[in-house]
């Protein structure tokens, strides 16, 4: 016969993948609805995790609801696998779920990312989980999330279009940086999370599944595979990705991948590819000058979303 004290203190350890089965089931139910209604923000309860809010707890909850010991997990922050925050989340996931980890985007079954989508094209049955600080693309024109919700219900995006038009009149271009709003499956305007504009086209008609989750704001949404994702653009003023033409990665010598700009003492800057997992694969492929041939065979660098000349793989998507 168990006592209340025993029942209440039985849980000195933690559940598999940290979340208890109720929390996981709730997230799973919500994820299914998110996939069924692409780009629609599904409200969820959002449990507290032992990581501070705003540090990826939304993405982490989704990852924990999905992950199993058969998964290979990659975690990136700003494109980097080895940044402190990415390392912290990765060791938490690995520790709580016993999953394998990798830095290779094509080997991963589950990728949790903050602010980037890898350069290599993701494949069917890969899941990309994007951390979202603010899920509401209408925030700039409507602060109240309950009013914004009504605007989504009515597909009332007039104010957002107007704000883009005003930017155009004033600055001769749309002045949005990251988090560029997109129309998903011709119905919901969605914030793609603060990925650069360079990454936005990667969501369109993709082979993989993208789940986006905001833990603090308690909303999750999805872009299923093979779904239309169109950045808001005017017929005569097309959407433009970041202009990094002429920037060359000092580590790989490559161009036309998304770059970090590294200011140098005395002025000027050098550039490096932001996707460190990709750089790692490219550098391994380059034979070592001193010990050519001794490098063990590595996974080939996969097809990328943008080719070496900067052309996006779906013809005509970027005008």
């Amino acid at each position: 016969m168990s006592t209340v004290a025993e029942l209440a203190s039985s849980n000195r350890g933690y559940s598999y993948a940290f979340l208890d089965e109720f929390a996981k089931r709730e997230l799973r139910r919500r994820i299914l609805k998110a996939i069924a209604i692409p780009g629609y923000q599904v409200p969820y309860a959002s449990r507290e995790l032992p990581i501070a809010r705003g540090w990826g707890t939304g993405g982490l909850q989704v990852t924990l609801a999905l992950v199993g010991p058969d998964d290979v997990v990659k975690v990136i922050d700003q494109g980097a696998d080895d940044s402190v925050n990415a390392a912290n989340l990765r060791r938490f996931i690995a520790r709580m779920a016993g999953a394998d980890t990798t830095t290779d985007a094509s080997r991963a079954t589950l990728i949790q990312s903050r602010h980037r989508i890898p350069e290599e094209r993701l494949q069917e049955h890969q899941t990309l989980v994007l951390q979202v600080p603010d899920p509401e693309p209408l925030r700039s024109v409507e602060h109240d999330i309950s009013k914004a919700r009504l605007m989504h219900a009515e597909a009332d995006y007039g104010l957002l279009w107007l704000s883009l038009y005003e930017q155009l009149v004033r600055y001769r271009r749309v002045t949005l940086g990251a988090s560029y709003p997109c129309l998903v499956h011709h119905r919901y305007v969605m914030s793609p999370s603060p990925i650069p504009r360079w990454d936005v086209p990667k969501l369109h008609q993709s082979a993989h599944l993208t789940l986006l989750s905001a833990g603090r704001e308690k909303r999750l949404y999805a872009v299923p595979p093979y779904t239309d994702v169109r950045p808001l653009e005017f017929a005569d003023v097309p959407f433009r990705v970041e202009d990094q033409r002429g920037w060359m990665c000092y580590r790989t010598g490559l161009q036309n991948k998304f770059m970090n700009e590294l200011p140098q003492t005395g002025g000027g800057a050098i550039y490096e590819i932001s996707d460190t997992g990709f750089v790692e694969k490219v550098l391994r492929k380059v034979p070592d000058r001193e010990a050519a041939g001794s490098t063990p065979a590595q996974a080939a660098v996969g097809a990328t979303y943008y080719d070496d000349e900067g052309r996006f793989y779906i013809d005509g998507y970027l005008r």
Binding site: D134, E136, P137, S140, L176, A178, S179
Partner: peptide, 11 residues
């Protein structure tokens, strides 16, 4: 810029 739709310029 994490706030979707916010302008990058102050005016």
């Amino acid at each position: 810029s994490e706030r979707p739709g916010a302008p990058l310029v102050p005016e």
